[in-house]
Nucleic acid binder design. Structure first.
Lengths: 151, 151
DNA sequence: TCCAAAACTTAGCCTAGGCTATAGAGTGAT
DNA sequence: ATCACTCTATAGCCTAGGCTAAGTTTTGGA
């Protein structure tokens, strides 16, 4: 039963390198996206986003959050008012909106292809940072096509 | 047209933290998986896997490869015979096999939901490390279900 | 009002994963 | 047999993203 087709040739060195480079870039932005997304969620749901709560929700120490927030401030995504919580800049809010939209899309897509809601939510956390625009478009098309049938 | 449903409540702190922790664990193993997968591919396709070639295909300097290989050796995944190339240990080969199977599954799945082969291949590079076993199982089921129709 | 608890900051440390520059080793072609 | 070229290793540096421990501020309740 084994398909003994011609072994798939390796991609060209340049193509493959380009993929890995893009990959590493995505990794670098992932943390920033997770933070602004979470800050936006907290602001919406609780009215404020405290560093302590971020630490608890990210599963990380307060010191790590402080560190990360400093970077996000440097990058113009977040503003802090000590003892008043964290706020998003224009750019931060925009990034959060895009991140959230992507997250939601990925979750809905995963559910549509048969994953339970819990796992979909958990996996989306990782997958959302690595789906290209083309992939997201494909997911959206898939959801559209299947919205007539179920739901 | 805006669905103005009740705002989705935040997940519990513990659940959310657990997701992010799992996330970070996946990130840590991703590089190792990429390396052993690539080494396996090179061994298969070219008969040998040289550090130089890894550097070119990973889009990284030779020094970085040397560094990474040292870690992989320490972790019992890779063996080196200088000027003879790199080899996988038992554990390394096993990891490579699993990684490759996952990679292939993700690629086929992405194509099945409408992505072009090129993008599927590129995106799989990132996505493969963040799909849980449950997600992979769902992808496999999806492919099975759709294999009767097309192809 | 005041003071303990909670929130935040700072210092110091670590690993992974990048880099450049340079030195050293091995191979293969002449 | 040699020597140029290729491959590998090493030194030294950097950032991100973790940690613990030990301050410092602020807040809010008694």
């Amino acid at each position: 039963m084994r398909r003994n087709a011609v072994l798939k040739p390796l991609p060209s060195e340049d193509d493959q390198a380009a993929r890995f480079v893009r990959q590493r870039e995505a990794d670098r932005t992932a943390v920033a996206e997770d933070y602004v997304e979470l800050i936006a969620d907290l602001l919406r749901a609780e009215g404020e986003a405290r560093a302590v709560d971020l630490a608890r929700r990210m599963g990380v120490s307060q010191a790590t959050v402080a560190n990360t927030i400093t970077r996000l401030q440097r990058d113009g995504l977040v503003e802090t008012r000590p003892y008043r919580g964290l706020f998003l800049t224009e750019a931060g809010a925009e990034l959060a909106t895009r991140a959230k939209a992507r997250h939601e899309l990925v979750v809905r897509f995963l559910i549509a292809v048969g994953l339970d809601a819990e796992t979909a939510e958990a996996d989306a956390e990782g997958l959302e940072h690595h789906a290209s625009e083309k992939a997201l478009a494909a997911f959206a098309r898939f959801l559209d096509a299947h919205n007539g049938k179920r739901r």
